[in-house]
């Protein structure tokens, strides 16, 4: 009984300590972003790795989600004779929720895990210590550019995802099921407002980007320096970030006052 309690206590304090270390780590990454040199080359490389290389995945997923939304909402809406609101329904669902959330989850799987594993294996092979011996701060040289890259990339990928989704649903609804293209587009345009919907989408994807950047780089940086440690850190990056994104999405949606 005493053993269970003390293990529970250790688990809770361990969680709180881990949270504190993550936030501290985030603060030092943030500080290092304002230290010269800017590390432009590394940032460009990070944008290439997590952005350009995720592009095909994001566009294909966006279009597929659009196809499914188009089909499902068409059959639901046609029960009420409201097929013409397909554009409204698809646009709002994609812009407000599905775009930022699914982009966050996809980029977590595609780029977050890679970032974590990369930093983790650098640590396991003592490359981070090597940098320190050359008086180069690994947070400034390795972590900050990758974190910044993920944060920059996220809103851009999310916007592309939304546009491919809207296009996918247009293909299904208008070209395949014979809705009027004009009413699809005009329903979309009249229902979506900048402040409530588009700005919410951008803010969400930025916050998801910050979460992913922080968690994936910290897990890699703090992992146990061996093969098992790197694999655990990568798994826990994907799991923790996915849960955090879904939780943050709920909080942000309710804060926005829908």
């Amino acid at each position: 009984m005493k053993g269970v309690l003390s293990r529970l206590g250790a688990w809770v304090t361990g969680g709180v300590v881990g949270l504190g270390q993550t936030v501290n780590f985030g603060a030092s990454v943030l500080r290092s972003a304002f230290v010269s040199p800017l590390r432009g080359r590394q940032i460009v490389a990070a944008i290439y790795d997590s952005g350009v290389l995720s592009l095909a995945l994001l566009c294909a997923s966006g279009a597929t989600v659009g196809f499914v939304l188009g089909l499902q909402l068409y059959y639901t809406l046609s029960r009420f004779g409201a097929e013409s609101s397909l554009g409204t329904a698809v646009g709002l669902a994609l812009i407000r929720e599905l775009g930022p959330v699914l982009t966050g989850l996809l980029v977590t799987g595609r780029a977050g895990s890679a970032t974590c594993a990369e930093i983790g294996s650098m640590k396991a092979t003592d490359q981070l210590d090597g940098l320190r011996m050359m008086a180069i701060d690994p947070i400034h040289f390795v972590v900050m550019p990758r974190a910044l890259g993920i944060i920059i990339v996220m809103p851009l990928l999310s916007a592309l995802f939304v546009i491919f989704g809207i296009g996918g649903a247009y293909l299904i609804g208008v070209e395949l099921l014979g809705l009027d293209g004009g009413s699809y587009i005009s329903g979309l345009e009249s229902a979506v407002a900048f402040r409530e919907d588009v700005l919410q989408s951008i803010v969400k994807s930025l916050i998801f980007g910050v979460l992913l950047a922080l968690i994936s780089t910290y897990r890699g940086y703090a992992c146990a320096p061996n093969a098992v440690g790197v694999s655990r850190a990568t798994t826990s990056t994907v799991v923790t970030t996915s849960v955090c994104i879904l939780l943050a999405d709920f909080v942000l949606t309710s804060l926005w006052g829908v």
Binding site: P155, L156, L157, A159, V162, I163, V198, S201
Partner: peptide, 13 residues
């Protein structure tokens, strides 16, 4: 990406 954001903001939003 920026064009996509601008399109969403100006045209759709």
């Amino acid at each position: 990406g920026l064009m996509a954001l601008a399109f969403l903001s100006v045209q759709v939003g």
